[in-house]
Design a protein around this nucleic acid. Structure first.
Lengths: 278, 278
DNA sequence: GAATATGGTA
DNA sequence: TACCATATTC
């Protein structure tokens, strides 16, 4: 028996909007710890990891560990039927091949239940080691989204370079080149007093050593679908490690996207990024 | 000679937006009583009835009963040229094969007249008997629209069940099933005082006996195009009678949509709904 | 935050 | 042509 009651249902709606374009089908894993998902994107280049900790739910009952295979497109269709203020409850009976989403309007005047068929999905659950990163950039999520969108109108790849001074996003395409530098914000104090820059709106860099890596903008732009989940995004970079783009979900967990860097080809267009798994 | 002056011209614009998708050509009937229309949709499954009473016009002159055949698409094109605050006057000379729409801007700075050719349309004017309905549901029109839209992302038909407790909208499709229950709002008093539920925002059910009927969502979604006309919608149901979905037009009349229920096929997909006329 | 208006897509 | 998604306004 599984019953997870999430008061801020819009979170789940946003989570699905953020990952459904990347992943078609995935197993949601439910345990006493929380509700989580790990899945490769359809082209096996990027990886999504979601965690919603049990503490974030108003009510969390999960009698035994269970893995529920869902088509994220269909799940998203159903969640779109929930109002943004609705309380969402996820229910599944033991051994059932369906999951039920229940939506309660804030006033309780409208109660909806949507039942969806589960699927069998075989997924390799990768253990993702906690790595030490050369550099971690935290910046406003909307700003990162804007940068990825802007750059992708010029080129296909983004070169991200981090130094103590700031982070530089560069691209190159047929029509020209572009470089966007976000300076580490050193004026947080002043910012607060003039009510323009809240700390969340600053770019903050934690750096052990400078790092420069190249990524496919196509995936970066997919990741930024998670922007509504958090005001800030964290980008963790190390040479030869997949980048981690993380959106924290308030009080509950995170959505993390992993993407392998492009190998610097001095030659030309090799459009296939390196898969995360060989 | 016909001359109807409607101060709130946006009403006529909205009326046309609400019916032009359903009906291509129709006769507008003009008499001392008012300006009305009755027409089957192009597939002869649904029926639209419009009434704008003469009292609702600032000036209403209709010397003799007249029936004017119009292409609603073209009429809508012309009405789109009226500003939302414009005063609209409909004019026709006796024996003329054209109608003129005159638009006056609130400031009288801009006066437009659009002349449209009339058409000959033979239409059977059905007498619609005033029936006693098993159940009449009144609910916020936006909520009804939302429900029809949500359900149509899951299935093609909606089963509407009314009991004293509330009204249930259900559907079933390839990806699963959905049930949305709107409880009759019994707490209108409390609601008013806490400023959340205005009476208009409550679901109210008048029921003589429980009723369960099935309808094609495609038509229901067409009907909800009339949502901008009224904050509330009234759904009148009886077994084996067409449902009536009514949007009242303030001070003037209504737009009503009639749709025959689907016959419960225990077998499979019979996509053709029963026509209202045989 | 909600509703509406507009533009793009299917 | 109709629907959806976004952008803008209240």
């Amino acid at each position: 028996m599984l019953e997870l009651r999430l008061v801020q249902g819009s979170l789940l709606k946003k989570v699905l909007e953020s990952i459904k374009d990347l992943v078609n089908d995935a197993n949601f894993d439910c345990s006493a710890t929380g509700f989580s998902l790990q899945a490769m994107d359809s082209s096996h280049v990027a990886l999504v990891a979601l965690l919603l900790r049990s503490e974030g739910f108003e009510h969390y009952r999960c009698d035994r560990n269970i893995s529920m295979g869902m088509n994220l497109g269909n799940m998203s269709k159903m969640l779109k039927c929930a109002g943004n203020d609705d309380i969402i409850t996820i229910k599944a009976d033991d051994g059932s091949d369906t999951v039920t989403f229940m939506f309660e309007s804030p006033t309780q005047d409208k109660i909806a239940d949507f039942e969806m068929k589960l699927m069998d999905i075989d997924s390799e659950h990768l253990g993702i080691p906690e790595a030490e990163y050369h550099a971690i950039v935290r910046m406003p999520s909307t700003e990162f989204a804007r940068i990825c969108k802007d750059l992708s109108s010029i080129g296909d790849s983004v070169v991200i370079s981090v130094t103590k001074e700031g982070v530089k996003f560069s691209t190159r395409g047929d029509i020209g080149t572009a470089n966007i530098v976000c300076r580490q914000n050193t004026t947080v104090d002043k910012a607060c007093s003039c009510h323009i820059h809240l700390p969340e709106e600053a770019t903050v860099i934690e750096m052990n050593e400078p790092v420069t890596l190249t990524f496919a903008l196509r995936y970066m732009n997919s990741f930024t679908k998670a922007t509504p989940l958090s005001n800030t995004v964290t980008i963790s970079l190390s040479s030869d490690l997949p980048v981690v783009v993380e959106y924290k979900i308030a009080e509950m967990g995170y959505v993390r996207f992993y993407l392998a860097p492009k190998i610097e080809e001095d030659g030309e267009e090799e459009d296939k990024p390196k898969p995360l798994t060989d």
